[in-house]
Design a protein around this nucleic acid. Structure first.
Lengths: 112, 112
DNA sequence: AATTCACGCTACGATTTAAATAGCAACGCT
DNA sequence: AGCGTTGCTATTTAAATCGTAGCGTGAATT
């Protein structure tokens, strides 16, 4: 049986409280999750297209992540359109853009 | 030898370009990474304290994540103080607070 | 001076997750 | 009927994480 998708209000790995932020961290702290949200910002993509955008990550992980993100109502699948951000995914993705800006600034400083 | 820490400008898993946001997603998309940043917002914590705050995650992962976060200049270790957010970690953590607010709103809607 | 204690870990076997690759069923188009 | 695209599943192999035990150091206590 597959691991359950972390959702707010549910007990998740590392949180008996089910605080929404813990569920979200659990969900987004899985491989390719953040990347998928990022790649879907610009609009719908087919499964294969998305997989390519994620640099060829294996279809099994992509599929698993998509299932979780769908259960979390962040992503949805419209036949003929492929995968796209659901309204809540769009909301969440808005918080990623400033982080992108910050990351570019970050680029100029770590001990590299 | 351990896996290398994703840093901007370096090629990372799933990104030949080394775009900073990809490095960041790679770094934060590892177990407990987001949580650690979150738990350190309030101030310094000892290793064991932090581990407890992360609901008893194994010391090996916590240590691995801390090493990566330190190499990424997001976290630092001050002897006598324990671990704390470095200036850049503080900057980044500012972007997490609004996400927390959003997550509480998210709580009221997914198909749960 | 010996003991205790907290701290920051490391070691290691067991389990879970992800990677890599192959391939299949359903659909639309010609 | 043949071909291409889509959205996957299956299988094997590799890597990441878990869970528990315990070590070395330094400061405080007895």
């Amino acid at each position: 049986m597959a691991k359950s998708t972390p959702l707010p209000g549910k007990k998740v790995r590392g949180s008996e409280t089910g605080r929404p932020i813990m569920a979200l961290f659990d969900l987004l702290g899985r491989r390719w999750a953040l990347r998928i949200l990022w790649e879907l910002r610009a609009g719908p993509r087919t499964f294969r297209d998305l997989q390519q955008a994620c640099d060829g990550a294996s279809p099994s992980v992509i599929n698993t992540r998509l299932r979780e993100l769908r259960e979390a109502a962040l992503v949805r699948h419209e036949s003929g359109e492929g995968y796209e951000l659901a309204p809540q995914g769009i909301e969440l993705s808005k918080y990623l853009s400033p982080i992108n800006d910050w990351a570019n600034y970050w680029d100029n400083s770590p001990g590299k």
